[in-house]
Design a protein around this nucleic acid. Structure first.
Length: 590
RNA sequence: GGUCCCGUAGUGUAGUGGUUUAACAUGCCGCCCUGUCAAGGCGGAGAUCGCGGGUUCGAAUCCCGUCGGGACCGCCA
């Protein structure tokens, strides 16, 4: 070993001991006759003192050393002199009087500041990710992620779960997201697909009798990036046999409650047991199926008041079967016309054609884009419904339900940010239940599953699959945290006939179904236990627990927005011979 | 596929009403300095302002194009 101790572990108890340390030079303070170096390793920082009188050779050897050089030092631990204690670091009471210095490797001037927090260009960070990861923030995130995964493994292991690895090279499923494909050398013209999730495989493990399965599973989806989406990401994939919805919910709720207490004790869970909402309720109250319930500003329906209110826009929307809903942005009553126009621009991104408002300045009075059209009765009705008072800003969208929900749902979270209502130290978990089993796809003129093909309908709603599919509910549950969907799961179909019926409902040709999912249907004929599971997203959960704004911050080597690895420069062209072996010819556009 | 924002020494920024030796901080190099912890002092080097074209007597600055990055919409069962 190059070291007898880690930098972070030294305390007053080590005083008088000779130690050998190795690490990176974090900072250097050269006073001429004495040089201080903060030596860093993964476990902490310690001050090294090179004194020209006591140890001239060591002092001289330290002279050329710069930030991020890798050095090994030998010295003696001693208490710092009176008044020289540094309370900001764990080893602040001691220092190491250095006797010998050995440079293990010098370093170029790094393109990233390791020793201070500052804004860094995202491309520079990714290009030099190995340097970026040296920073305290990134190290914290790596450690947090490790502890989260370690906790999950231990917790599930203690409860009889078996971690099983499933293939990365598997079969394409044209449903859902776009697949990453891998050409087959041995089978010209054929392709493997990387799994979007191990969904089918975990169900087959239930058929195999595993009963309690989990996996820290890498998943791949070839879609465009967002702050919370990477082309490859990690799920806690989990499946159980002989369980009902309540069993899966109870397990996950208990596990994450305990995880938060152990791993991020400084965070507060908003409410236990976790609140549960139906899909219909969250869409009505929050406008999203993944609501942030850390704050109010809920959506309020004024459809009844809008009928015959005198304002043509509202009346026409109601007559056309639409909705009129609003939010009371309490505290923004002094927003200027320009600020409200900016909010109007914001909701227009989600299809809203306008944003009607009634502003009640804190000084009193009223400004509104449409109140002049309203009957006195309608205006009073609206103000009463929002319990409006001076300082409030009422914002309304009138449109088809989907547009109203999305635009106001997004606006609600924007306003929550502006009003400082989204406390990063609060974790608001909740469950969203009773999703529609299928949703009508207007473009394709067919029913699409709202979760996935293998989700079971509510038993009492099975007759609806024939009569009124849109009314049927699925045995699906979404895990939501602070406005992010961090997991989704369901009780699965385990009977072949019901699975075939669902395939038929969503317009999947029986022959195609047999080709794509024949192995599943066949397996269901060999004694399949009732089963269900869930797949919490590890990256998103770590992101939220770490208080980070982007999923990249909790992934060691993430891709950039264009799905590139800018450090290694992937993807990259390949040799013609490689393509030939794979029976692939390129047809590139201009 | 689309919308918006960004691109200036190693790094982070200023400068954009057209005329500057392109500024500041930090880092880097040299000298001084024995108790600092973002050490300090003095001096120095370092940028053809992402790239290409255009307008102009003159462009970091205005226009067009292009490349790269970020946020978002579409997309993500």
């Amino acid at each position: 070993m190059y070291k007898t101790h880690t930098c972070g572990e030294l305390t007053l108890d080590h005083c008088g001991q000779r130690v050998t340390l190795a690490g990176w030079v974090h900072r250097r303070r050269d006073h001429g006759g004495v040089t201080f170096v903060d030596l860093r390793d993964r476990f902490g920082l310690v001050q090294i003192v090179a004194d020209s009188t006591a140890h001239p050779e060591a002092h001289q050897a330290m002279e050329p050393v710069r930030v991020e050089w890798v050095v090994q030092i030998e010295g003696k631990v001693r208490a710092r002199p009176e008044g020289m204690v540094n309370p900001d670091i764990s080893t602040g009471e001691i220092e190491v009087d250095v006797h010998a210095v050995r440079v293990l490797n010098p370093a170029k001037t790094p393109p990233i500041y390791i020793n201070k927090e500052s804004e860094i260009d995202e491309q520079v960070r990714l290009r030099y990710r190995y340097l970026d990861l040296r920073r305290a923030r990134m190290r914290r995130n790596l450690e947090l992620r490790h502890r989260v995964i370690k906790f999950i493994r231990d917790y599930l292991d203690a409860r009889g779960f078996l971690e099983v690895e499933t293939p990365i090279l598997f079969k394409t499923t044209p449903e859902g997201a776009r697949d990453y494909l891998v050409p087959s050398r041995l089978h010209p013209g054929e392709f493997y697909a990387l799994p979007q999730s191990p969904q089918q495989l975990k169900q087959l493990l239930m058929v195999a009798g595993v009963e309690r399965y989990f996996q820290i599973a890498r998943c791949f989806r070839d879609e465009d990036q967002r702050g919370d989406r990477q082309p490859e990401f990690t799920q806690l994939d989990l499946e159980m046999s002989f369980v009902e919805r309540e069993d899966v919910i109870a397990l996950i709720e208990a596990m994450f409650t305990e995880l938060v207490a152990q791993v991020v004790p400084e965070k507060r869970v908003l409410q236990t047991p976790w609140p549960r909402f139906t899909y219909e309720e969250v869409m009505n109250r929050f406008g999203k199926d993944n609501p942030d319930i850390r704050f109010g500003l809920e959506l309020v329906d004024i459809g009844d008041l809008a009928t015959g209110c005198g304002f043509g826009v509202f009346e026409r929307v109601i007559a056309a079967g639409g909705q009129v809903r609003g939010i009371n942005a309490r505290g923004l009553g002094d927003y200027s016309r320009k600020q409200i126009e900016e909010l109007t621009g914001f909701v227009s991104r989600y299809g809203a054609k306008g944003l009607a408002y009634i502003a009640l300045p804190s000084e009193g009075g009223q400004r509104s884009s449409f109140a002049k059209f309203l009957s006195e009765e309608a205006l009073q009705g609206i103000l009463e419904r929002f319990e409006a008072q001076a300082g409030d800003l009422l914002l309304f969208v009138a449109d088809q339900p989907a547009v109203v929900a999305e635009s106001l749902g997004r606006l609600r979270e924007l306003l929550g940010d502006r009003l400082g209502l989204r406390d990063p130290d609060v974790l608001a978990f909740c469950w969203v239940l009773d999703f529609p089993f299928v949703m009508w796809n207007e473009d394709e003129q067919r029913w699409d599953p709202s979760h996935h093909l293998f989700t079971a309908p509510m038993p009492e709603d099975i007759p609806l699959l024939d009569s009124d599919p849109g009314k049927a509910r699925g045995q699906q549950y979404d895990l939501v945290l602070n406005g992010y969907e961090v997991g989704g799961g369901s009780i699965r179909i385990h009977q072949r006939e019901l699975q075939a019926k669902v395939f038929e409902l969503i317009g999947l040709d029986p022959e195609v179904a047999a080709e794509r999912f024949g192995h599943m249907l066949e397996a269901f004929e060999y004694g399949t236990p009732p089963h269900g599971g869930i797949a919490p997203g590890i990256d998103r959960i770590c992101m939220i627990l770490a208080g980070e704004p982007n999923i990249r911050e909790v992934i060691a080597f993430p891709k950039n927005q264009n799905a590139r690895d800018v450090m290694a420069d992937a993807p990259s062209p390949v040799e013609p011979e490689q393509l030939k072996e794979l029976h692939i010819g390129l047809e590139l556009g201009d």
